[in-house]
Amino acid sequence: MIEIKNVTKKYGDFVAVNNISFQVKDREIVGFLGPNGAGKTTTMNMITGFIEPTKGEIIINGNDISKKPKKAKREIGYMPENVPLYLDLTPREFVRYMAELKYVPRKERKKEVERVLEEIGLLEVQNKLIRNLSRGYKQRVSMAGAIVGNPDVLILDEPTVGLDPKQITEIRNLIKSLGKNHTVILSSHILSEVSQICEKVVIINKGKIVAIDTPQKLENATKDDNSVIVTVEDKDNNMKKIKENIKEVKEIEHIVDNEDGTKQYRVVAESDIDIRRKLFEELPKNNITIFELKKSETTLEDAFLRLIDKDVNIQEDNEKIKKEKKKKGKGGKK
């Protein structure tokens, strides 16, 4: 279990990570999401003990990473961003070195290295210099370095960046299978990835946690309206009148003109009403042919953008209020 309690990291005046707290339970895969520069890597570096938080505690399986670094670090396998590796070693040498650093006993070392090389699929390149490997293989070597010694906690910083689609699927499946007996924190800015692999998502923006929940719940929570997407052939331009004909329709918004002459609209209805049946009955009466009718779904992508937008708006509002207060204060003095 990983406990992060009120952690702050400052660089001079700049606050990279601002008072964040969350927990990761045993055998849970948690996705750490945020735009670039949100503080994901800084947080991961703090969890792994690479950098020291300015304030707060990080506890890995009961050991504080700052107070008992040796014990805490033994529980962690870390795959850093940009996969730094010793280029003049071979994958086998690298994994053996990592095993040694992680106190894998001498007797079991050979077997453990063998197991990891096989599990990650590195056997065919095990004796080539890492310098000469492709990006995908380098990524795997880095992953192998993280899982050797079978640590309880895996911290993976953008594990699929720079891979081709086939490799991405492979790595994702690997992470899923690792999640069965490891606690995993995984950072990414690819949302579909997170919704596929993770049981819980932590969204972070500008150093603050914006939301913590399951991917599904996040999608539902940010589903703001009850809208339907329709693609229609509408020669007489009757679509605008529909709003008057069906009283439950709040708004009709034109999205796009398709090449085949059809048009796509978003129809927003009063909440809790399924407008599809009404549309299906009403539109043909107005000489409109329906080509497609579907409920619009919020994806995690929308949820993410919406949450971050909301966060930015709140911050802007706060700043406005502050400025106004200052103005008022000055005015008062005069």
Partner: peptide, 8 residues
């Protein structure tokens, strides 16, 4: 150094 300093 990230690998080295995060090792136990």
């Amino acid at each position: 150094e990230q690998i080295l300093f995060t090792s136990p």
